[in-house]
């Protein structure tokens, strides 16, 4: 029993790492652009598929394909913002939300068109897992968690040590004051999309490593990603780390008592409870 719980906790931390990377992006974008970006899951999927092209097409190892996928997804996010969201900056947030819902659907269609509708994986064959004390750990799991830790640390340094990172926090803190301080909002917005899109790409790749690639993978993970962002207090990227871990662990551990199919329901339930009891999130949110 203890071993089983530990095993589930390992899965939970892996899932939590993936959700965290997605939720940080959602939170950053919410903090600066003030809308819930519903295409974020599909941006994750797009990143995963960029990687697949290099892995399956050119024989890259997954890790080597990641930088290209990060750049690709960052550019895609910026392009979407410039062609669509930018024209809606003065619209109410609700309109941007609907627009991003449309973008989500469009991205998924693009994925189907380019990469086809079937399930795909990065590497065929089974990884040889490490076993000790009855626990099973796949090398991929270690990479995913390590990768997330490194990226979160890098993001922390970016947000606290660089001028642009601080400007992002400033805009999220007080948009009007940022403007009158001379912070160029459009440039900061562009960087925000680049960071959010890049993190989404890695989250997508990790999700693809952990499970498989499928055009619907992004939309399916959107609910837990938002649950994580909301739990952490949407608009607070640091909260997203805690939120991601809580949601990831809860989803995996819950399978002890309920049918694993209903994992998303666990994320949903936690999110709704949080919204009702403490709408500002575990930590004080920006909303």
């Amino acid at each position: 029993m203890v071993t089983e719980l530990l095993q589930l906790a390992i899965y939970g931390v892996v899932l939590g790492s993936i959700l965290t990377l997605g939720a940080i992006g959602v939170s950053l974008i919410y903090g600066i652009l003030r809308f819930a970006h519903f295409a974020h899951g599909d941006l994750m999927a797009l990143g995963a598929y960029f990687s697949l092209s290099l892995v399956a097409g050119l024989g890259f190892p997954v890790w080597a394909s990641a930088p290209f996928a990060i750049v690709g997804a960052a550019l895609a996010a910026i392009a979407i913002d410039q062609t669509v969201y930018r024209h809606l900056r003065k619209s109410p947030p609700i309109i941007l939300l609907i627009s991003s819902f449309g973008i989500a659907i469009a991205l998924r269609s693009v994925i189907q068109l380019v990469w086809g509708p079937r399930n795909q994986v990065y590497a065929s064959g089974i990884q040889i897992p490490w076993r000790f004390e009855g626990l099973v750990i796949k090398p991929d799991h270690v990479w995913i968690v390590l990768g997330a830790v490194v990226l979160v640390a890098a993001l922390h340094l970016f947000l606290t040590r660089t001028k642009m990172g601080k400007a992002m926090r400033a805009m999220s803190d007080n948009m009007d004051l940022a403007l009158v301080s001379g912070i160029p909002s459009e440039r900061v917005i562009m960087v925000t999309w680049a960071v959010g899109g890049g993190l989404a790409a890695v989250a997508g790749i990790f999700l693809g490593m952990d499970t498989r690639l499928h055009p619907v993978m992004g939309w399916s993970v959107l609910l837990p990603v938002f649950a994580a962002a909301i739990l952490g207090g949407i608009g607070r990227p640091y909260g997203a780390i805690a939120g991601g871990m809580v949601i990831g662990l809860a989803m995996e551990m819950s399978t002890v008592v309920i049918d694993p199919t209903y994992k998303p329901a666990v994320a949903f339930a936690l999110m709704v409870i949080m919204l009702v009891v403490r709408p500002q999130g575990l930590f004080k949110g920006n909303a």
Binding site: K163, K166, R169, A170, L177, S181, I183
Partner: peptide, 18 residues
């Protein structure tokens, strides 16, 4: 609302000089 509330004093000044 004339400061950046979640940022330090130093960071606020830095933003003034962006």
């Amino acid at each position: 609302r004339n400061v950046f509330p979640s940022m330090s004093v130093e960071e606020n000044l830095e933003m003034g000089a962006f």
